[in-house]
Amino acid sequence: MTTNDTTTVSSVPLVIITDILLQLPIKSIVRFKCVSKSWLLLIKSSEFVTAHLNCSIRNHSLIVRYYNHAFGNDSGLMLLRSDLKQHQVELPPLEGLSTFPKIVGSCNGLLCLDVSSAFGMAFVLWNPATNEFKRLPTPSLTESRLKTFWMVSLGFGFNQDTNDYVLVRIVNFQARYDAIAEVYSTSTGKWKEVAAGTGSCVIYGGQDAVAVKEVLHWIANGIGVLVNEKFVVSYDMNLELFWRTAMPELPTDCYVKALSYDQSLALAVYPGLGFRSRLSNRFELWVMNEGKGWTRTFNTAFERIAWPVGSFRDSKIIMKSVDQFFLFNPKTKRNFILPIDSGMGYSYKVFTYVDSIVAVNGENDEKEVEAQIEGMVHDGSN
């Protein structure tokens, strides 16, 4: 088909055109937006974007951010696709970067990047498949003479009920036990301050928020009178409400990481690297059962010391040992080695990723579509 062969294009039923486009690589789909106004409207429609995303979800990938502590400039992004081949990912053309961006979260093909040097002060929403990106407005909560940052925690998720991508920023100031939170949503394009309600606890920066359905979760440590306790702090994107949940009784010398597992919030409990106990390779998984509290799903031991870094397809846990990554299936207790280069001097963040055509300005940005159609009118396209 060509843009000049309008008879051929218009004579093909829309349902067939849709089925064909859904099978094509994203680069081809993006090019076909220029075929005609009707094709542009089809590809930009929320129905087509959702249909394409549902097809892409069958082929999850992993995106890995790596950073060398000894050589800070040795950083990058690597994509591990379902064929187990590694692909380097180039950042979008972002100016003024003082450090390699951190990934706040990955959702429906969109990555939320923290491009600030500290305290989550600048963000970019980026689709690596289409290479579209958008700088988000500067957060409202800033330092002042009387309010100095102590800790800033971040989370990124998708509210399916409102078709909205949400970025949460929780700020703890020095000499204050209470936290202040603000939320950015793609539907409004603005930051909005919300009551944090986390009480006497703090979410330490650097950890990844876990999205389970429409709720984001963080691990938090008590402060003040609760200094020896651990909690899960949660934020419901629909209710715009924070709350905290006590953890099960765990050893005081263990590490805990929040994960998404089997459509529920789970806690991976492990001794961690450098632990000298004979139980240093132990691993437990506790799952939150709605209305019933925590249940220990399993307790196992690996052949070597390993710790969790994320979950894959909500059914497997991504583990890292000193020199390798592997997928662990809690139900079968089988491991699968991942071909990810693992160096001693590197830190890693691993996220589940899918290719998508979700736009950084929203799935159906009317102003953008109108501008493209206007351009087609001047070019003579149909």
Rank of each mutant, 00 (worst) to 15 (best):
V30A: 10
S36E: 02
S28Q: 00
F32M: 14
E47M: 08
T50G: 02
V9D: 04
K37R: 14
I43N: 03
L22T: 08
K44M: 12
I20M: 06
L14R: 04
S36Q: 07
V35M: 06
S45M: 09
I16T: 13
L22Q: 13
P25R: 00
I17M: 14
L41K: 12
S38E: 07
V30F: 09
H52T: 03
K27L: 01
V49R: 06
E47I: 06
S28H: 01
I16C: 13
K33P: 01
L40K: 03
S46L: 15
Q23S: 14
L22W: 13
V9N: 10
L41Y: 01
L24P: 05
L22H: 11
I16L: 15
V49G: 09
W39M: 03
R31H: 05
S36H: 05
S36I: 06
P13D: 03
S11G: 02
Q23H: 13
L42F: 08
D19N: 15
V12Q: 04
V12R: 08
A51H: 14
F48S: 11
K37M: 10
R31F: 05
I43D: 02
S38M: 06
K33S: 08
L14S: 07
L42M: 13
F32P: 14
S36A: 11
D19L: 14
E47P: 00
V9K: 05
L22I: 08
D19H: 13
V15Y: 12
H52Q: 10
V12L: 15
V49F: 06
L42V: 06
Q23A: 11
K44N: 13
L24M: 14
S28I: 00
K27F: 00
V35D: 05
D19I: 10
D19M: 13
T8N: 09
K44H: 13
P13R: 09
A51G: 08
L21A: 05
L40R: 04
I43C: 07
F32Y: 12
F48G: 12
W39Y: 02
I26S: 00
T7H: 09
L41I: 07
T6Y: 02
T7Q: 12
C34Q: 06
L24S: 04
A51W: 09
T8V: 05
P25E: 03
K37D: 07
I20C: 05
V30T: 14
H52N: 11
L24A: 05
A51M: 15
P13M: 06
E47F: 01
L21V: 04
V9P: 03
T6G: 01
S36P: 08
H52S: 04
K27S: 03
S10R: 01
A51I: 12
V15F: 13
C34Y: 03
I26V: 15
V12A: 07
V15Q: 07
Q23D: 12
